[in-house]
Nucleic acid binder design. Structure first.
Lengths: 236, 236
DNA sequence: AATGATTTAGACCACATGGTCTATAGATAG
DNA sequence: CTATCTATAGACCATGTGGTCTAAATCATT
């Protein structure tokens, strides 16, 4: 796997850190300890972005903690450019929320400044090889946060008292169309039934969901995993 | 780290797999190759759940591909019981969607049946030690899927042509209340303005969002990150 | 000083929506 | 073989909603 790399050209890297000393430290480290090519460095996110556009590096090492424009939004912007740049986030803290958000917006790796320099080189290696790199400590933090955020969501949706469960199949179909913003007339046409029948169904839905109008019904459906359950039915 | 385990009592495990041969194979493997204690086995998810309630094991090895009640919903149910059971998912395929969903609902590990038996033992070891275990190949698949799903979300929300951007502040406030299923009268009271003013705002909102009714407006808002941007304003 | 955008508000009308009640045919369950 | 549930559908009415037009006060910008 790694062997394939040796034949390739050296991966080109841009370093971004608002601390100049730290920046040159990393630069030196990479140049001495690895065979990557540091083509540019930047001390601000906005400069970094124009440098990236110019040099089209394979890898960007981005410090997250920067004044002015913070690293996370910078990463988001770079990802949006869709240049195939692979970004490694760099920070002092192992804050799970930070890690989660960085990975969410597309970072391919995440390392702490306190980590050994060998680990930094290894991370770049891995990311350059197309992989995603998270040190073990960070990946567990990531997963903790990941699962926590979804657990909260699940408690709201898959709740034991989900009124959606009381709906009949036909009522679900009607509600499904309501969640697409379709009127009585539209629903009637789509389901080949009369408009008054739709009204009956809708009224029954209101009763069961304990709401007074379509908007509330749609909101209830959306907030209680109505779309998810349709997906599941199709997927599984 | 690992050393701490030796002092503890052997971790107790329940195995779940609809294939009986496979089940006894794993059981034998664990009993011979490790010092874990297989307290029970089950060939169906529903049996597994009652066994878990009875034995309160530390670890559950759960096959995902089972007829009747599938493994994923079983995992979700077990997690809901909140017994502190740590579940490892087991399957033949490395389908990223499956992996993602398993981890999402709370699995602490995920391994393939095709993997070496040593890796299975190692996975149990890690999960028993409170960690989360994903083999390298699976974790990259997980992250790919993770990032892909959020990329799509971002493209829908942070889209360049987001009609929500054209709304004035007051219109945003009104729309915010609409997304809570509040009527004209309610909005008027909340904002201390007349009902007809609310109507004017709402009509302007419809124009700007290019929709014909509140439901569609609410759906547009929800699908285009209206709630997110309020969150973002507060959070970041 | 003037222009334009925003917020406020009213009038008027058509019609969509919600509430309630009744009723029939078919399916399902006890 | 009832009893219940479900899907269908109509009548009737009150009211909420959406469309359009007008208009005044405020505020920012030129």
């Amino acid at each position: 796997m790694r062997r394939g790399l040796e034949f390739k050209k050296k991966a080109r890297i841009i370093l971004v850190d608002d601390n100049y000393d730290h920046l040159s430290g990393i630069k030196e480290l990479i140049e001495i300890e690895s065979d990557f090519d540091v083509v540019a460095t930047a001390t601000s996110a906005s400069v970094a972005i124009s440098l990236i556009k110019k040099y089209r590096p394979e890898i960007v090492l981005m410090d997250i903690n920067m004044p002015e424009k913070d690293g996370l939004t910078a990463i988001a912007e770079i990802e949006k450019l869709d240049l195939g740049v692979r970004i490694i986030a760099l920070t002092g803290y192992d804050d799970p929320d930070l890690i989660f958000r960085a990975m969410k917006i597309g970072a391919k790796g995440y390392i702490l400044k306190t980590m050994a320099s060998a680990q930094l080189i290894y991370a770049i290696d891995e990311v350059a090889a197309g992989k995603i790199y998270l040190p073990a400590t960070l990946s567990s933090r990531f997963f903790e946060y990941f699962q926590k955020s979804f657990k909260e969501e699940a408690e709201n949706t898959a709740d034991e008292e989900n009124l959606l469960n009381y709906l009949t199949q036909r009522e679900e179909e009607v509600l499904d169309l309501l969640t697409q913003g379709i009127t009585y007339k539209g629903v009637a046409q789509k389901l080949f039934i009369s408009e008054t029948t739709v009204k009956t169904h809708v009224n029954n839905i209101f009763q069961k969901l304990q709401v007074n109008d379509r908007t509330q019904a749609v909101l209830y459906a959306l907030n209680n995993g109505f779309l998810n359950r349709r997906k599941v039915k199709i997927a599984i």
